[in-house]
Structures are given as C-alpha cells and as structure tokens.
Design a protein around this nucleic acid. Structure first.
Lengths: 160, 160
DNA sequence: TGGTTCTGGATATTAGATGTCCTGAATAGC
DNA sequence: GCTATTCAGGACATCTAATATCCAGAACCA
C-alpha cells in the first residue's frame, strides 16, 4: 500500500502557491524549487486544475495559481485529485465464490470485513477533509516565520 | 493507493479458521473455499505464521490454525503481517532539495505536510487495531447464524 | 509572427503485485 | 525406513500501475 508521490508534490506546491497569490507560476519554476521532473509535476498540476484546485493560463506570463482560498482546499481534495477517489481496500467479493453465497448480493456492501475496512478508511478521509492548506500554512509560518518571504524572493530571483 | 489483495484473503481466512478451532486446515482447502490460487494464498498464510497469527504444521494432517484467541487478533495485526508496517504516504523529504533547507533535519519528522498525513494514517491504524477477528466473527454470526455450521460441514465434506 | 506555456495523448521505463514452480524439511501412516 | 503429504521459502515469470519523457496542438503575450 503505497501512495502516489504526486500527492506530496501537489500539497507542497499548493503551500508554495499560497505565498504567491495572484501570481502565475510555471511548472518549470515549481519543479526547480524542489528539483522535481518538470513534465511529470506538470501532469499533477494539470490534475489539480481539472479538480478546480488550481487555475492555469497558457502562454508567456502563464502558469498555475490557486483557484480558491487556501482555507477552502482540503488535503482530501488534493489526495482525491491526484490519487483518485477509490478506497485502498478493494473488496473483490471473494465470498461470492464461497459456498452458500447469495449470487444477487453485493458483498462490497454486505461483507463485514469489507465494512470494517471501509469504515476505517472513511474516517481517514474525513480527517484529511478537516485539514486545509491554510491550516498547514499557518503551522509552517509558526515554525518558520521566514518561509513565506524566502519563498517569494526565491521565485522572484529565479532567472529561467 | 491500492492495498494488497492478500489482506482481504488473510482476514477471511482468519474468520474461517476461528470456526475450526484446533483443526489444521491446509492451504489447498482454504484456497478451494474461495477459489483462490493455492500457492499464492499459501504465501499469505506463511506471512501470517511468521507474524505469530497462525501456527502451522507440516506433513499429512498438517495445515494452518489460529495461533491465539481471535479476540487477540486485530485487523491491524493482519494488515501489518501481509502489507508491512510502512505508511502509505512516504515523505520523500522534498523540502531537503528546496532553498533554505536544513541538511541535518529529518523532514519526515519536521515537515508539516508529512505530519498531517502521518497523523491521519496513525488514526486509521489505531482504528484497525481496535477491531479484532472476534468482533468480525460476532457480527457475521449475527448476520448469518448458519455460517459457522455451514463452514464446518463444507470443510468436513471436502474430499481432496 | 515567434516564443512561451499549458493540454493531453502516446510511449518508454521501472517497480511492485500477482502468480507459478521447484527444492528441501517436517511429519504421519504404513 | 519408505512414501505421501504439507509447509517453507527462494527463484522465476507475468501483469499492472507508477513514474517519466516526448511531442503535436492550442492558448497566449509581446
């Protein structure tokens, strides 16, 4: 059970973009910031855009920026945009192959192993839905007060 | 983010074994019950054995059985045995590549994105640790009172 | 018009999950 | 002791998904 690395990239990208409001940042510059592969990060940013988390503009002076208030972007929003909405535990309904199975039953609903796993995962997602990018940003600024300004000057000084 | 299917197999196997106490059940018979590939299910049962959840005996009349009381086998025990103890979200410490990074810091601990994701996952695991095989069994028996007896007769009548 | 950037599809590469096979060790029954 | 059965575990094959690159097209600015 390993999560898409793009989730990590996307979350950090959103934190950085929250410090650059109203500014379009290109995928190349964001990739350079953390030394990530540009084209692949671009794919993640596209996914965030399709999900309505970022907005994008083409052409020179183009790039990505947050599409809405960081207080309204949850960690679950990002996880879902990058990794999809499917649960990690997938009930393959093995009970259906067992003796005494009801062929009409949907064991993804009925099976109690499946229910227990889904309940735990639902809780996990609920917890991520309660955490916003703004929450993270607040904590980062408390931990490293210079971070916002450092980020802004880094992006301002980056040539290419 | 997709979980190993073996987790599902292992949980259902443990439920079945709880209805056959003191009896050694071969991997072949367990596989036949749900029409699973024998050799591969055997690998999962071996993992459960290494984790101390099952005990195994070789030779004729050999097989697997629960190594301890179902009330003392949690869903987390099984998940960990099959899928390992690693978190799904792996902090790759991309902050380390960023400007102004502390080369000595362990960002798996410091990074606040990482912390938020780890906290949610810890909660998930805590919830699974609170659910035992005995809990599942109790619910299954409430839902399908005939299940234990049906399982026992099925295994008793199975020839090969 | 030319250069820049996002969009999205095609494709390559790699890692992990899934599944099979085989040898060896343990064990029960004869 | 001999044989058949079963687990233990490594080697290997296959398949799928993640990771990564590339390119043609559209949007956009100067």
């Amino acid at each position: 059970m390993k999560m898409n690395e793009g989730v990590e990239w996307a979350m950090h990208s959103c934190v950085n973009l929250s410090w650059l409001p109203g500014e379009a940042v290109t995928a190349k510059r964001l990739a350079a910031f953390y030394d990530l592969p540009t084209a692949y990060l671009n794919k993640q940013l596209q996914a965030l855009t399709r999900a309505g988390i970022l907005s994008s503009t083409s052409g020179p002076k183009g790039g990505f920026q947050l599409a809405r208030d960081p207080r309204n972007i949850t960690l679950l929003d990002i996880l879902t945009a990058i990794d999809g909405a499917d649960d990690a535990f997938r009930c393959t309904q093995i009970l259906k192959a067992g003796p005494g199975a009801d062929p009409k039953a949907d064991y993804r609903e009925v099976c109690l192993v499946s229910q227990a796993m889904r309940a735990a995962e639902l809780n996990y997602r609920r917890e991520l839905a309660g955490q916003t990018i703004a929450d993270i940003v607040t904590r980062v600024e408390a931990q490293s007060p210079a971070a916002p300004e450092n980020t802004r000057t880094w992006f301002a000084n980056l040539k290419s």
